[in-house]
Measured scan of single mutants.
Amino acid sequence: NQASVVANQLIPINTALTLVMMRSEVVTPVGIPADDIPRLVSMQVNRAVPLGTTLMPDMVKGYP
């Protein structure tokens, strides 16, 4: 099973992602692959992302 990117904390709308905000976890449904975490750094979320939420491609501005 492939690990996905999961919010490690509440991420407010328009926040630029940092490594501490994300963790990898095997979840269903599958979200953004954990391998993409380095690419996500400094990209902004377009909505508030609660703790434990799987990051989906449509939540991150400019992804992929």
Rank of each mutant, 00 (worst) to 15 (best):
A7E: 00
I11A: 01
S4W: 02
V41E: 05
V26F: 15
P64F: 05
Y63C: 06
L10R: 08
M22S: 01
R39W: 09
I37W: 03
K61R: 09
Q44V: 13
L17E: 02
V6E: 01
A16Y: 13
I13S: 11
I13H: 10
M22C: 03
L40G: 00
V45S: 06
N46K: 09
A7F: 01
K61T: 12
M59G: 03
S4V: 02
T53K: 12
M43L: 13
A16G: 12
N1D: 15
N14C: 06
G52F: 07
S4C: 04
G31R: 02
M21T: 03
V30E: 15
I11K: 00
S42A: 14
L40S: 00
A3T: 14
N46Q: 14
P12D: 13
K61V: 13
N14F: 06
G62S: 09
P12I: 04
D36S: 10
P33N: 15
A48G: 07
A16W: 12
I13E: 11
M43E: 04
V45P: 03
T54G: 02
S4I: 02
Y63F: 10
R47C: 07
P33H: 09
P57F: 09
Y63H: 07
M22A: 02
A16L: 11
M21C: 03
R23H: 06
G52N: 13
M59E: 03
P29V: 09
L55H: 01
V20P: 10
D58L: 08
L51Q: 15
L55M: 12
I32V: 12
S42M: 13
R39A: 12
D35Y: 09
L55E: 01
V26L: 14
P29N: 06
P64V: 15
P38D: 11
M21H: 09
M21N: 09
T28R: 03
M22F: 15
P29H: 06
V6G: 01
L17W: 00
A34V: 08
I13Q: 08
P33D: 11
V49Q: 02
M22D: 03
D36I: 10
V30L: 12
V20K: 13
I11L: 10
Q9N: 09
I32D: 01
L55A: 01
L40Q: 00
V20G: 10
V27H: 03
L55S: 00
Q9E: 11
D58M: 10
N14S: 08
S42F: 07
S42P: 01
I32W: 03
P29Q: 04
T54N: 01
M56Y: 10
R47D: 08
P38Y: 10
V30K: 05
T53H: 14
V41D: 03
L19D: 13
L40V: 05
L17R: 00
Q2S: 15
S24I: 13
L17F: 01
S42W: 07
V5D: 01
Q9K: 09
I13K: 08
I32F: 03
T28K: 04
S4N: 01
V26D: 15
I32A: 02
T18F: 03
T53A: 14
V30W: 08
T15H: 07
A34S: 10
T15D: 03
A3L: 10
I11Q: 01
P57C: 10
L40F: 02
P12E: 06
I37Q: 04
R47K: 15
M21K: 03
L17N: 02
T18E: 09
L10N: 12
N1L: 15
V27P: 01
T15I: 05
V26C: 07
V6F: 00
V41A: 05
L19N: 07
D35E: 14
S42N: 07
Q9L: 11
L10E: 14
V49N: 01
E25K: 06
V27Q: 04
L55I: 10
N1I: 15
S42Y: 08
P64W: 04
M21Q: 04
R47F: 09
V45M: 05
S24C: 07
M59D: 12
T15Q: 09
M21F: 04
T15W: 05
Y63R: 05
L19H: 09
D35F: 07
L17S: 00
L40M: 06
V27S: 04
G62C: 14
K61Y: 08
T53R: 11
V6Y: 00
L19F: 07
P57I: 06
V5H: 00
G62F: 07
G62H: 15
A16T: 09
V26A: 12
T15R: 06
K61H: 15
I37E: 03
L10V: 08
M43F: 11
P38C: 08
R23C: 05
V41W: 03
Y63G: 04
M59Y: 08
L10D: 13
L55T: 00
D36P: 00
Q2F: 13
V30T: 11
M22E: 03
V60D: 01
S42L: 14
R39I: 07
I32C: 04
G31I: 01
L10T: 13
V41Y: 04
A34C: 06
R47P: 02
M59V: 07
G52R: 04
P12G: 07
V45R: 00
M56D: 04
L55G: 00
P12F: 05
M59F: 14
V60W: 00
A7L: 03
Q9H: 12
R23D: 07
R23A: 08
V45W: 00
T54Q: 03
P12A: 10
K61S: 13
V5P: 00
V27M: 08
A7T: 13
L19G: 07
P33M: 09
